[in-house]
Design a protein around this nucleic acid. Structure first.
Lengths: 147, 147
DNA sequence: TCTAGATACTACGAGATCGCATTACTTGGA
DNA sequence: TCCAAGTAATGCGATCTCGTAGTATCTAGA
């Protein structure tokens, strides 16, 4: 179950699927002015404000990348920095009303794609999600520092 | 099965898993001088020479990105351009001996990670791969132009 | 209380990604 | 045989990613 005849493997499959998703979503979301990655970050933030560090471990990105994101989103007026109550070195990143609106606009373009993919996956959607969650967990264990 | 209580979905899960994988592999492969993306491309090419266009649709990347890849890999001496027999506008990208060696060195660093992930996925590895393949297919259908 | 070491973030810069516009070749039709 | 339209790849440039090095703050121990 390791490598099949085609010489591929789980991680390669993951790479292909993810590239396909990013490519489709980048294009679908373009009219809303967000990339697939940005939309994902907005989606995390819409649930609750997070510190840059938390965001970094969530999305498995280096701190400097998150820093750039915050700067960019703030320049767009989509995000605001709230002082951190217990730690003066940090802060919390919160979506502004404008940011939430942008997320919603993008969401309207995202949903049809999601629905289409879900429809094609059919009742196996849940299984796929479970598989992805397990894969992520496996990877987080391999490299400490994950969520 | 669409969105669970956490407000996430299959595509979001895919994004998280893929980011985790890239992050782990970028670090693991660094001593070999390849990124996770580059390793994946080398892996495709090690099987057979491809045209830039074929490569682009395989990895769902824009042609200009593939162009940059080829230029970079060629500068490293890892890749060579073979004239295309039937089409003077194109060519085929082939891994050189040196490129194959680099791929092998990276492969030695990649394998332990893969084995670890597979071990943690256990007998569900095959199911996960199937799920990923179906997801990719679904996405390719959503946006024509896939493999 | 003071300080050494750890931790959170960022300035900066090198290099990567990818859209737009262009060049080069191929192909189908007159 | 020509040519108009279509297709493959690339030059260029704007923007993004992220490693290195550095600043600000926190924490534990003496």
């Amino acid at each position: 179950m390791t490598d099949d005849a085609s010489g591929t493997n789980v991680l390669f499959d993951l790479w292909l699927a993810s590239r396909a998703a990013t490519s489709v979503l980048d294009e679908a979301l373009r009219p809303a002015g967000l990339t697939a990655d940005e939309f994902a970050v907005y989606s995390v933030l819409v649930a609750a404000p997070l510190t840059p560090g938390e965001l970094a471990s969530w999305m498995a990105a280096p701190p400097t990348t998150v820093s750039s994101y915050v700067r960019r989103f703030e320049a767009r007026g989509h995000v605001r920095r709230l002082p951190h109550p217990d730690d003066g070195r940090s802060y919390r990143v919160e979506l502004t009303r404008e940011g939430r609106r942008a997320h919603q606009r993008a969401g309207a373009l995202f949903l049809p794609v999601l629905r289409d993919v879900e429809a094609r996956l059919g009742r196996s959607t849940g299984a796929v999600r479970g598989a992805l969650a397990r894969t992520r967990t496996a990877l987080d264990v391999v490299r400490p520092g994950g969520a």
